[in-house]
Write a protein that binds this DNA or RNA. Structure first.
Lengths: 345, 345
DNA sequence: GATTAGCACTCGGAGCAGCGGAGTGCTAAT
DNA sequence: ATTAGCACTCCGCTGCTCCGAGTGCTAATC
């Protein structure tokens, strides 16, 4: 099973995949024969297709139906047959215009980008993940927010803002808060939230030796604020797009499973996990994707940098039968756009 | 058409509605005859049903099918026939447990409540809206957030936190920021964001006469931060629940329209708009709902108070054929829970 | 030897008839 | 006023045929 293809086989496979992407119907030998630039009769095509089937790139839903690409077929197509295009000019312009308009806050920009990607793809649902805890911090700010509450506002270098409300903190004067602030910022300098948490815990042990009660309080307080591992932000855009796909619209069970999965943040994060490390683009076809039980969805995703390190990932989730030649440049471009926008901050 | 019902008619209507809610199938006279406590033969029931049909409470999908309640039928049921129950004990407990666990921040609580409501209802999708701009403020805090950026953190008395990033602000010393903060808080005291915006604009005119440049700057800056009308926060939970309903699962077109609508914040806000004013519960059945084009969904919603005034609304969106006797107490209870939790802050 | 025309074969889906059942409305009996 | 009885309606299921798209194989052709 599976193996290298000669040129003719590759061309036939390419046509089958592309036609299937377009029509969502099994593709017959006549169709391919007409589509191919090199003229070959349907009979010849049939022979080639039979070979491709033996190699595991195609299957027949039943005898006397056309062929449908398998996961391996799509894989081969994506790896070797896909013409790698740049994103089309007008679409690049749309992105640029949007980036110009989007306000200063990082999460606003991410939301806009994902919305645009979803509209342009029309195939699938776009998901963006931003892992806050590994972004280098810009500043921490403690605020009084009521009689017994203080608010810790966290700003990362990428321009992400998050806040934690801490309850049951009484008797901190404005002066105390100022001092704690200064201390925390000194501690945090250049670290990520994750690293800071470690440092605070270490510091707490040492500081106990000394007798600075305020600093001790500061450490306890921030340890409390940071104890819940900071959640990964997840944005999902264009859920309704998947209804556009005939393969899902027909099978409500499948649809239900997918939509349910999308309500779980953790599932989405797992889907994009791979790309949260490097910023190369990743294509997971069908059962290759990291989440079990969804053999008919593909994920095209890419990490993006927020500042120095890759902390976010944008991904497009759709049917295996998606238009990779359009989708891949789209995701690639938007990830690069996010990275470069955050760089200039 | 439509009119008052005698007792027997009402009982029959009640049974038709309840049976239809349960089965989603047209209800026949035999079924009702068996279900009714007062024994009546199917033939009698048929006569009564024919009357109810004339009055507009029931329809037949076709001759020789059972009857289905119309919008008016459901309306009558909800207004006069529904046994108003309290929420069941175990469910109340679930809410209490959750409220105890939920962290301090308001939006976390709201999210948890909507999630629980969605799980308990299993029928529909829950939506929560919180209108920030009419909540009385607790404090405003300006923070430095980079070389040319400042961050305005807004905390309302209900415990809601929001922030706005303002770009292109250079040359403000820490001292300046402190002064601006004090000034803004004095200005904001007890006002809502909406009122504050008005006050700032008025103040700006007067302040021009005076020559305090820093205060002028403060006003300009906050005016900029508040110029975009603060968006209404919208949380949607349990979208996939609507797939559970046979009436939608069968009609993909309808489903698509509904899911698309849910991607638009504005549509959701319009659906709950009515209840954003008072805190009474509202039931919009079918085409009664404020958004045109969705004649087969109902909305059960109630406002809740965040502090003094009603600024939020929790609503349940589902098929017209929903179990109002379960849903209404559920929504009522959760709205009251939100109000009372926010009161004790 | 590769390609192709020809042909028999397979299989799914559309279309149609027939039937059974659930439900109705009407009439006549209680 | 209620109800038993009955004829009637209509939906949806089942089974049937027919059609077409597509295949694999074989034999003829380049």
């Amino acid at each position: 099973m599976t193996g290298a293809l000669d040129d003719r086989g590759a061309q036939v496979l390419r046509h089958v995949v592309e036609d299937y992407i377009e029509t969502a119907e099994p593709v017959g030998s006549r169709t391919i024969s007409k589509r191919m630039e090199q003229h070959l009769s349907p009979a010849t095509i049939r022979n080639i297709m039979a070979d491709l089937e033996e190699m595991g790139y195609l299957v027949q839903p039943h005898t006397s139906a056309g062929r449908v690409p398998t996961g391996a077929g799509f894989r081969y197509y994506v790896d070797y047959l896909l013409a790698r295009r740049r994103l089309a000019r007008p679409q690049r312009d749309q992105f640029q215009r949007m980036a110009g308009e989007a306000g200063g806050s990082a999460d606003e920009l991410v939301r806009q980008v994902s919305r645009l990607v979803s509209t342009l793809s029309r195939q699938a649902c776009v998901v963006v993940v931003a892992r806050l805890s590994s972004q280098p911090l810009r500043s921490l700010n403690l605020l009084r927010a009521g009689a017994d509450k203080v608010l810790l506002v966290i700003v990362t270098q990428g321009g992400w803002v998050e806040h934690r409300l801490i309850e049951g903190e009484t008797g901190l004067s404005g002066d105390d808060i100022g001092k704690i602030n200064a201390y925390l910022n000194e501690l945090a300098d250049g670290l990520s939230l994750h690293e800071l948490r470690g440092k605070i815990l270490r510091e707490m042990k040492q500081e106990k030796a000394r007798y600075d009660r305020l600093m001790q309080r500061a450490l306890q307080l921030s340890a409390r604020a940071l104890e819940e591992s900071s959640p990964t932000e997840v944005y999902v855009e264009g859920r309704a797009n998947i209804l556009e796909q005939p393969e899902f619209a027909e099978d409500v069970q499948k649809l239900k499973r997918i939509l349910r999965a999308f309500e779980e943040k953790s599932v989405i994060v797992r889907l994009l996990d791979r790309t949260l490390e490097g910023d190369a683009i990743q294509v997971s076809i069908g059962s290759e994707n990291p989440v079990e039980g969804f053999p008919d969805i593909s994920v095209v995703s890419s990490g993006y940098r927020l500042g120095e390190s890759v902390t976010g990932s944008i991904g497009l989730i759709g049917p295996v039968r998606m238009d990779y030649s359009r989708i891949i440049p789209l995701v690639e471009y938007s990830a690069r756009l996010l990275s470069s926008t955050f760089e200039h901050r």
